[in-house]
Amino acid sequence: MIEMLQFDFMQRALVAAVLVGITAPAVGVYLVQRRQALMGDGIGHVALTGVGLGFLFQTSPVWMAVLVCVLGAVVMELVRSRGNQRGDIALAMLFYGGMACGKLLVSVSAQAGSGNLESYLWGSILTVGPEDLATIAVLAAVVVAVTFGLRRQLFAICQDEEFARVTGIPVRLLNLLLAVMAAVTVTVAMRVVGLLLVSALMVVPVAAAQQVTRSFRATQAAAVGLGITVAVLGVAGSYQADVPSGPAIVLLAIAAFALLGAVAGPLSRRRHRAAPDSGPEVCDVVLPAQSAGRDGTAPGREGASAGRDGRRESEPSAGRGLAQ
């Protein structure tokens, strides 16, 4: 197990895995909070056009993808903030257009075979070079600085955007910043888990963590912890078992989700017992009227049967009324 650390490529792979394990859930928690869990998936589709452009112009596909993703994410944010009723159609155009355009560009460029595209679709962490790692590290540092440094502001706009606007914080700017961070994270994670699975690492650790947490802060911290764990274990496992790293990481994350789900049941039951009884409005109104008619035994049953009797009695009389 430990001997894999002797290889340079494994060291780079593990560092990249840790960076992705931190950044993807750190951004993803805001997207899940705002019920935009699949935004990462959409950005992943759009990123493919960036990769294609990188192949075509023989520049770095990662930086091209960053550029195109940021543009795509900004467009998505503008569509969302307009609240356009046909917004989902616009997003569909963007997603599938991005994917189709990417594949087209890749096939037009003579330089790359389809095998190379595969490595972006599914991730190939073992081919991460030193320059790639430097790029990933810089982008990850920016994402971490923003998502943790502006946690209260980003939480406010995702929790209640209208209220956040009244507090005077620059809501529009923060929304765009969050969209850009999501785009950057997709490109950071692209080499590790692949564009098709990138969204999973943004969403699944958050979904797993929130089964056992109560606060946003704890959810974010636990999701990042889970993200790092599954990313490192997934890379190590993929080295040992000779399987691709992306699917290994995602399946581990889903296993963590199931495991925490099993733990969460008893935990929430205990919390329910601790919480004071609340919301008796309906019962307060209904019960006295029912028990008034009959003696107190089993008021719910009695009340229901009394109601049925009442209807049965009233219907024939109504019929007689019509007949007369």
Binding site: V32, T167, G168
Partner: peptide
């Protein structure tokens, strides 16, 4: 929201105009 949040966390967002960054 899609993620759990405590009462304190929600109320704290009302303090953003005071502490800002």
């Amino acid at each position: 929201g899609g993620v759990p949040a405590t009462v304190r966390e929600v109320v704290s967002t009302g303090r953003l105009p005071q502490h800002r960054l």
